[in-house]
């Protein structure tokens, strides 16, 4: 799986590249319009993460060219402008997703995986970790083949943590992903804890081979244990 990161901010580009390498993708990075154009001319990527504001040009132009050459490439727009125009134009031009900056790496990871799942036609989409199987299409969870009942929020949390397996997921990233964009201004994320508590109990009761670990005050991590 080959991914191109087009992002002019060096620190962010490197952070994204590190994340993607940890997830075992082949990663290439470009910091400006021309080098991105060169790379897109030569290689075929499964997924391109595209910043709109680039030195030397507009990311939307790259998007247009890319769509003419290779329709199969999945594209996620990363825009600091956060502008609705970018979002609308980008999606009209054929981008698959739009992630406004700033974003959590866990969220980017989840978006990429979801995009790749959508692009992989046919077959059954599921996530398997130890004896835990999450059926992405049916939205069901089974442990040792036995289905367990999760409510919508619990499923979303588990799915999100499983997508980011072994990765610390910040509380506010979970809140934004599961409860929506504007909920995170709420006073505290303590209400997430009660959902996690229920989820942990259900996993434990079913003897799941995974465990949701609390990382002191910061967030949660799903590990095989």
């Amino acid at each position: 799986m080959k991914i191109l990161v087009v992002e002019d901010e060096k620190e962010l580009r490197e952070s994204i590249a590190t994340l993607l390498k940890e997830e075992n993708y082949l990663v290439e990075a470009a910091g400006d319009f021309n080098s991105a154009q060169d790379k897109l001319d030569i290689h075929v990527y499964d997924c391109v993460l595209l910043d709109i504001n680039l030195p030397g040009g507009n990311g939307l132009d790259l998007l247009r060219e890319l769509k003419q050459v290779n329709k199969e490439t999945g594209i996620i727009i990363l825009s600091a402008r956060g502008s609705l125009d970018d979002k609308v134009t980008g999606l009209e031009l054929g981008a698959d997703d739009y992630l406004p900056k700033p974003f959590h790496m866990a969220e980017l990871n989840a978006r990429i995986k979801s995009l790749i799942r959508r692009k992989t036609l046919g077959g059954h989409h599921s996530i398997e970790i130890s004896n835990l199987v999450i059926d992405v299409d049916q939205r069901t969870v089974a442990i040792d083949g036995q289905q367990i009942t999760l409510n919508k929020k619990e499923f979303e949390i588990l799915m999100y943590l499983a997508t980011n397996k072994n990765r610390l997921v910040n509380k506010s990233a979970i809140a934004a992903h599961v409860w929506g964009d504007y909920i995170d201004e709420a006073n505290s994320f303590d209400f997430i804890y009660s959902q996690i508590k229920n989820l942990r109990k259900k996993l434990k009761d079913a003897n799941a081979g995974v465990e949701i670990q609390a990382v002191y005050g910061v967030g949660y991590k799903l590990i095989e244990g």
């Binding site: 620190e11 600091a80 900056k101 700033p102």
Partner: peptide, 9 residues
């Protein structure tokens, strides 16, 4: 935005 996101990451 960007420096904040990077610091958090």
């Amino acid at each position: 935005q960007t420096p904040l996101a990077i610091s958090i990451n």
